[in-house]
């Protein structure tokens, strides 16, 4: 077969699979999730969209979440983002520091086990076709928690926006205490490396962090949830 024929068949297969990916979002997600979450890659990355969206994008959920966690969380959704999504719409001036306006936060709907399992299964099919998440990037080398904490709190300042311990730390970003159970390590690694590549416009900066430091931070965050489990 001629090379160009290979290329043509390959391109048409690629186009078809992409079209199916965009059009064929499982029905359970359309009914349960679509009103607040983007299930396909959004066309616009404007600031307006960031302000209007009600929940994080889920079009790469299959490369982001751990399925077991999804099943449990969807039945009993504990708050992950202390100031909601998007934080600016839920904070107000307090006596001294700004405070979270709890009355403006709507709890995430609870699903019955059967629906949670169906939704989790469906979410895991929403994978990232653009290579946003570097598969195999995390080398699973353990870091001493004291060293990890030093990077997280002092050297990289992650704690300014994220809490590693419940009730202590920044509020504008998702809590990290359960992130190891919630998220795939390669997603954590890739998101720290370049949050703007995965979630364009998000209020987390892209820092210049070496691979060695990304490994340490990812390992620390993964281990945090194991620490939480022991409590």
């Amino acid at each position: 077969m001629k090379p160009y024929l290979f290329a043509a068949i390959g391109a048409s297969f690629f186009a078809t699979s992409l079209a199916v990916h965009a059009a064929d979002v499982p029905a359970v997600l359309q009914s349960k999730c679509a009103s607040c979450h983007a299930l396909t890659k959004p066309e616009s990355n404007s600031l307006d969209r960031l302000w209007e969206r009600k929940g994080p994008d889920l079009h790469y959920a299959g490369n982001k979440f751990n399925k077991e966690w999804l099943v449990e969380w969807l039945q009993d959704p504990a708050k992950i983002r202390p100031a909601g999504e998007f934080y600016r719409k839920h904070v107000k001036p307090g006596t001294k520091e700004d405070v979270v306006d709890e009355s403006s936060l709507a709890p995430h709907p609870k699903l019955a086990r059967k629906d949670a399992e169906a939704a989790a299964n469906a979410l895991m099919t929403l994978t990232d076709p653009d290579g946003l998440i570097e598969k195999g990037a995390f080398k699973d080398q353990k870091v001493a928690m004291s060293m990890g904490a030093m990077y997280f709190n002092k050297l990289r300042g992650c704690a300014a926006c994220h809490s590693a311990v419940p009730g202590k730390g920044g509020l504008s970003g998702p809590e990290m205490a359960t992130a190891g159970k919630r998220l795939q390590p390669d997603f954590i690694y890739s998101y720290i490396k370049d949050p703007q590549k995965i979630d364009k416009g998000v209020w987390m900066p892209k820092l210049d962090i070496s691979d060695a430091d990304l490994q340490k931070l990812t390992s620390y965050i993964v281990q945090l949830s194991a620490k939480e489990d022991k409590k």
Partner: peptide
Amino acid sequence: TQCHGVNRDGNGVNS
């Protein structure tokens, strides 16, 4: 504003 505050006075919700 997450750090510098809604009133731009350094009293953001993360501060």
